[in-house]
Design a protein around this nucleic acid. Structure first.
Lengths: 249, 249
DNA sequence: CGGTCGTTTGATTACGATCAAACGAAGTGG
DNA sequence: CCACTTCGTTTGATCGTAATCAAACGACCG
């Protein structure tokens, strides 16, 4: 049994959605990988023609974003401990986005080929990774709804709820009290607003006592009231039905 | 060789992204399925505790959408010939969305379990289906950008470009001339606008000669000018790198 | 022939963007 | 240790895009 693997948080996250056999788990934990540190504000190198690899967050926060022709920027996803930022590389699928370290970041880099080899022999691992991309897709849908159909206040609150719940699930903070991994400008890029307006929304929420801010530390008066403001229902983060495909092979 | 299977368009789409062996292809084409017709404007039945199944569009157009508490609606994806609308069911993953027939619709319904059984024995099929969800995810990202960061004019034009290109790829129309499968109200729900404003944008585009409309028939003056207005670059629809995982097993 | 649905037109409103500038904290170099 | 820069946050004033409200119009259908 591989106990000390740096991939433990990643495998733990997979197992939240799909049951794995001992053998499958060990195969994942024994994957070759090397650790890399990235400074806050730095983009992860885009693989050109070099061998592709998959990147798993060990600590810190990252995001994917895209810069438009007119200079506008949209942050498309946020990643934290245990999240794979570029699982598509395992299938040679390209995502036309940049990966940015929001904070100081530790990542594990796995050669895509090593992952690919597991797919042929271990169908349950293939399922687990596929489910992972389905969860990401579910979150992406919710983001489309967020920027498309919610007003600024609800939008910001919704994102703050998601960040809280995901950090709690990842074991890095409590859902109702955590250090914001984004600047207000980055919050704006994630919610399709301007930094000025994000600031005003945060001030309004503070004034009304829904949240409390001390530097970057965010404390919600109560989770329920925050979820209410953000029209937040957590189903989309846990889209796996218990039973069925979750059997270990 | 199964030649007359109704799943042919679906398998053809899979093979646009991943190479399949004869055996894999036949296994897919021989999947048990039954055909269902759905009237325009009707929601596909949500599976409760019944056996889950996967739905493939044979003809017509469908979409997934979500209704918010305040009555607002967001269309999240549009499906056409060859598209699977609920591939997540193969892994017992739930998507908290409704599926709506935009036009009269023919679909093939495949028992999820039959698909699941293929995953264990045919890793290349698992890959192909996974890639399919990655393509959908790529489109979803683009939609987030569209509603988040583009102005109404660009937004509408971008959607019209996507619809054209995808219909051409699916072999149901030319990219620059097709029958709009959406009402203006539905276009509004897809682009996070109001029907009134969609109408004004369409009129403006018509006035400027970028598009021509006759009933629902849409004709672009030229694809390039339309792509220009919509800031449309088609990469996100074809995110698969040639080579690598595309080997037939 | 009324009835419904989708489209079109017009008038008004408002939410959030934009522009501009000041402020505080953290980091850097002289 | 103190100027000085930089980055993130905050405040204020104004503007503009698209929403909202309201109503008419055309096509299709029973």
């Amino acid at each position: 049994v591989v106990e000390s693997s740096r991939l433990m948080p990643f495998v733990a996250k997979l197992e939240r959605h799909v049951a794995l056999s001992e053998a499958d788990r060990d195969a994942l934990l024994s994957l070759p990988c090397h650790e890399v540190n990235v400074d806050a504000g730095t983009c992860l190198p885009r693989e050109g023609d070099r061998a592709a690899s998959c990147t798993v967050v060990l600590s810190g926060f990252a995001c994917t974003h895209k810069l438009l022709a007119d200079g506008n920027r949209q942050i498309l996803a946020i990643y934290m401990k245990g999240d794979a930022v570029d699982l598509h590389n395992a299938l040679s699928v390209v995502a036309d986005v940049s990966v940015l370290a929001l904070t100081a970041l530790e990542v594990a880099v796995i050669p895509a080929q090593a992952l690919q080899e597991l797919l042929d022999t271990r169908p349950q691992i293939a399922r687990a990774l596929w489910v992972e991309t389905l969860v990401d897709a579910s979150i992406q849908r919710e983001w489309t709804i967020n920027v498309g159909r919610r007003d600024s206040r609800t939008r910001v609150a919704h994102l703050l709820c998601e960040l809280g719940l995901r950090q709690e699930a990842a074991g890095v903070a409590a859902r109702a009290k955590y250090v914001l991994p984004l600047t207000q400008e980055q919050l704006a890029d994630a919610t399709a607003m301007t930094a000025v307006h994000v600031n005003r929304v945060l001030q309004a929420l503070t004034r009304e006592g829904v949240i409390d801010r001390d530097k970057r530390m965010l404390t919600m008066a109560s989770w329920d009231s925050m979820a209410d403001v953000g029209q937040f229902s957590p189903n989309y983060l846990q889209p796996v039905q218990k039973g069925a495909s979750a059997q270990a092979s």
